[in-house]
Design a protein around this nucleic acid. Structure first.
Lengths: 96, 96
DNA sequence: TTGACAGGCAAGTGGCCACTTGCATATCAT
DNA sequence: ATGATATGCAAGTGGCCACTTGCCTGTCAA
C-alpha cells in the first residue's frame, strides 16, 4: 500500500501512467518522447528508467522483454486498494 | 491533484484518515491518542497538527472550530479524482 | 564484425519534508 | 485571576529521493 503512494507522489510517474493510458505497451524510448511531446516533461532516459522501476515495484506496470525492446504495460489493479480503503461504504463508521 | 498524493505519501497521514474513518469529527488530541492506541503510531502533537494542515490543504478533511476545540471531518471527494483519472474506462485507450 | 540502437548499473548531489523543540495564544473552570 | 486545557507558530535538523553523469551490456543490421 505504501509503495503505491510513494510511486504516485512523483509527478513524472503520474505522467508516465497517463502516457501508458494513451497507448499501452510502449518502450522506454517511446515513453521518453511521448512525455516530452504530450506531457511537456523533459527528463533524461535514465531518470525515466528509474521511474519505471519504481512503478513496476509498486505493481502499477508490468514489463515484457523482446529482443532489445522492453515493453511496458499499465496495471491499475493496485489503485483499487485506495477505493477499498477509503471510498467504500463502511458500516462501522460513526458507530461510537 | 498533486496535493492529494503529496498528502497521502506519509504513512502517518494515511493513518489519520483511517482514524477519522473510525470516528468522524475528532479533535487533535483525540486523533493523537487514537493513533497511538489503534494505529501504533506515536508522534508529537505538533507533528500530527502539521499533518492535519497538509490534509486540509489537500482538501481531504475539513475543520470546524468551537471554543477551544477544533473538530476534523473526513472528506474523500478528492480521492475520486484518482478513479476518474486511471480507473474509469477510457474509450481512446489502445486506439493507435 | 563493427557500428548503431535499446536498455542497465552505480555513484554523486541538491533540495525538500517529516519530525522535534521551544514558546505563544486562546478558551474554559474554579 | 489563575491554572489547566486545546491549539498555533516558527526555526532547526537529519534523511531520503529525484535527477544527472558516466560507463557498461546486450541485440540487431549491414
Amino acid at each position: 500500500m505504501a509503495d503505491i503512494f510513494e510511486a504516485l507522489v512523483a509527478p513524472a510517474r503520474r505522467a508516465i501512467l497517463d502516457v501508458l493510458r494513451e497507448r499501452d505497451g510502449q518502450t522506454l524510448f517511446e515513453i521518453c518522447s511521448r512525455l516530452t511531446m504530450t506531457q511537456n516533461l523533459t527528463l533524461t532516459r535514465q531518470a525515466i528508467s528509474q521511474h519505471l522501476d519504481v512503478l513496476e515495484s509498486a505493481g502499477l506496470l508490468s514489463t515484457k522483454r523482446e529482443g532489445r525492446y522492453k515493453y511496458h504495460y499499465l496495471n491499475t489493479k493496485p489503485l483499487e486498494l485506495i477505493v477499498e480503503r477509503w471510498l467504500k461504504f463502511n458500516p462501522k463508521r460513526n458507530e461510537k
